[in-house]
Design a protein around this nucleic acid. Structure first.
Length: 104
DNA sequence: CTGTTGACCAAAT
DNA sequence: TATTTGGCCAACA
């Protein structure tokens, strides 16, 4: 046994996050049984193939913010994708009602 | 092997 | 409410 979980575990969950909702890195980590590996989740998203079709943009950090440098190119891309599905950022944060798994 | 990095987080301040 | 701090741990150099 090497990694606490495999990338496909994350892909599987990611694929089931509905449009118009978001989840956090920590939530995904807990859902695959590796609560201390939120950072690894982010690392896996970073490795995601370009045309995967997976909604990587629906993942934000525990503060409800986009985990890219503000106004950076990646930041703006994620913001755009979110807005396209009706999620707007207030003070750089998504509103709570957008979270799919409030309790997990 | 040691040291650094990072799409993070929760608790303390 | 906002910022800082300490912890985390796989991946990489």
């Amino acid at each position: 046994m090497h990694a606490p979980f495999s990338p496909s575990d994350i892909w599987f969950i990611l694929d089931k996050i509905p449009s118009g909702t978001v989840a956090t890195y920590g939530q995904l980590a807990r859902m695959v049984g590796a609560p201390s590996h939120a950072r690894l989740v982010g690392n896996i998203l970073k490795q995601l193939p370009a045309g995967s079709g997976l909604p990587w943009h629906r993942i934000v950090n525990s503060k409800g913010k986009i985990s890219f440098p503000e106004s950076g190119r990646k930041y703006l891309e994620q913001q755009k994708l979110l807005e396209e599905e009706g999620i707007t950022l207030l003070n750089g944060k998504v509103s709570l009602k957008e979270y799919q798994w409030q309790g997990d």
